[in-house]
Design a protein around this nucleic acid. Structure first.
Lengths: 92, 92
DNA sequence: GCACAATGGAACCGATCGGTAGCAATGGTG
DNA sequence: CACCATTGCTACCGATCGGTTCCATTGTGC
């Protein structure tokens, strides 16, 4: 799922946590972070440590992908096509 | 591209920045962060703010995806298949 | 050699992130 | 009703993140 903002990542984490029937505390222990971090991240805290997010995603069996943002719905996650990016920047 | 660690995201950012022929300073200004942040992130600083990373990725025309980590090479980024995740957690 | 841009790095410092502990509200169960 | 788990939220506080400002080094071009 595309993540444009922290709020979207937060919703993803919360949804997956609930789907796994994990409490905030359980997820926090799995990921090695505090319950406060989970709670505040799900609440949309704008500043969150990337390392913690990676651990939480790992605890939820989720992974992070970086992919080129080519168009509204034309991306192919998993492959970074530098040519396409360069193409879009050729004018700048 | 799959991002398992901050180092991999850093390599992705650096590679894309160089492909776009942007200096650290130019990228920092585009993204609204300091050159220090760019330099330290590319150097692999383990703690980095997610919000800053999102801005930098945006400046590089990259996007972030959250996808289920099903197997070594069986993932389908873009869709979060809760059923598959639940399947893998059913024993726990 | 000289000038310039880019980069790695250090020092300083205010802002704030994250952990711990605690409390109130809620919902479920016996 | 009591009891328990979960969640939202707060106060406190040490650690550190990030911005700013410097400097040294490297590479490029005149």
């Amino acid at each position: 799922m595309l993540v444009r903002s922290i709020g979207e990542a937060a919703a993803q984490v919360r949804g997956c946590r609930l789907a796994l029937r994990l409490s905030q505390d359980q997820l926090a222990q799995r990921a090695g972070v505090s319950r406060k971090w989970v709670y505040e991240f799900e609440a949309g805290r704008p500043h969150a440590e990337l390392g913690h997010l990676l651990r939480v995603l790992d605890a939820l069996d989720l992974q992070l992908d970086v992919s080129p943002r080519i168009g509204p719905a034309d991306s192919a996650p998993g492959v970074v096509n530098l040519d396409a990016i360069l193409e879009r920047h050729r004018d700048g």
